[in-house]
């Protein structure tokens, strides 16, 4: 259905020989400032929580506005059922040694720029509260007298049967990464796909990184994913974008996630790709945070493997 809407947009664009777009200033009522909690925890990693505020649609959107949107001073705790830990607020201009790469991934910034900015997140160096398969983690955020809570689980990961690479029909030396998945029967499964060149510090998400097993519950099948690390850049000739090159070595990360996290992510990507589309229904994302905040508290259980791109 989402794809149909995408095609319909194309139809309009190609069929209507003239249409024009202009910027307008129009009253959009209903703005209400809300807290945004963006937290995640995955196997072997500490919980990381970013807290910010939603902004009016006509609010300033420059870098200062973005940076000033993050909230300091909240009391954030995470509990695994047996132990509760208060997270520490760390900021990009005062990072503990060795945490730069992880912070770069969290904030989406190059390591060298981190020290120049002041963005704070909440995390813990207490490994007792780091992610473990099979555990449920409860998040509690207290700020200005209000409390927000949520819980998420780290599920048992599912390994791919095989990872392989094959050249695309149009090339001899370029192709997508392929995998064979045997989806567990009689249970709900949701997956996130990420990959990176082996030398790269961060993982990249493809166009549609999330799927659940609604269509393939219990089945074994092959599927392909593009090389999302070079889809957007201009350093590759256009015809080579989104392909892996013969001989590339990549790391694949496939994570399992709970149903409520998948539902949030599915609608998030639908919203991202349908923004501005007259055929799309307005979608507010179904948060799993109780207390009136936006955002998500997400648990992931990744499975990793390395793929050398040779047939």
């Amino acid at each position: 259905m989402k794809r149909i809407h995408f095609i319909l947009i194309f139809g309009f664009i190609t069929l209507l020989f003239s249409s024009c777009t202009k910027e307008v200033k129009i009253d959009i009522p209903g703005y209400e400032e809300q807290l945004v909690i963006d937290g995640n925890i995955e196997t072997g990693m500490p919980p990381i929580v970013l807290i910010s505020l939603s902004r009016d649609i006509y609010a300033p959107t420059n870098l200062d506005a973005y940076l000033s949107g993050f909230i300091s001073g909240a009391i954030v705790t995470v509990s695994n059922g047996t132990k509760t830990v208060q997270l520490t607020e760390i900021c990009t201009d005062n990072l503990p040694p060795g945490s730069e790469a992880m912070a770069a991934a969290v904030f989406g910034l190059p390591v060298e720029e981190l020290a120049l900015l002041h963005i704070c997140a909440y995390t813990s160096f207490d490994t007792d509260i780091w992610g473990e398969v099979g555990k449920t983690y409860t998040l509690n955020v207290s700020l200005e007298g209000k409390t927000y809570t949520s819980s998420t689980s780290i599920l048992k990961p599912t390994a791919m049967d095989t990872l392989y690479w094959k050249p695309d029909a149009n090339f001899n030396d370029r192709g997508y990464s392929w995998a064979t998945l045997s989806d567990p029967t009689n249970q709900y499964d949701a997956y996130r796909w990420e990959s990176k060149p082996i030398s790269d510090p961060i993982f990249y998400k493809p166009f549609q990184p999330f799927t659940d097993d609604q269509f393939f519950n219990g089945k074994t099948f092959d599927f392909a994913y593009e090389n999302s690390s070079n889809c957007n850049g201009t350093y590759q000739p256009e015809e080579y974008r989104c392909y892996y090159k013969l001989g590339d070595t990549i790391v694949v990360k496939v994570s399992k996630l709970p149903r409520d996290v998948f539902e949030y992510m599915e609608k998030k990507y639908t919203q991202m790709y349908s923004a501005g589309n007259p055929f799309a229904t307005p979608i507010n994302l179904p948060t799993n945070i109780v207390g009136g905040a936006l955002g998500i508290w997400a648990g992931y259980s990744p499975w990793y493997d390395t793929l050398i791109c040779i047939p």
């Binding site: 209400e32 939603s54 009016d56 991202m272 307005p282 936006l294 955002g295």
Partner: peptide, 17 residues
């Protein structure tokens, strides 16, 4: 139309009024 915006995992998201 969305009445507000926010950022999650570096993605711009909207909240509708």
């Amino acid at each position: 139309l969305p009445s507000s915006w926010y950022v999650q995992e570096q993605n711009l998201l909207f909240n509708y009024g």
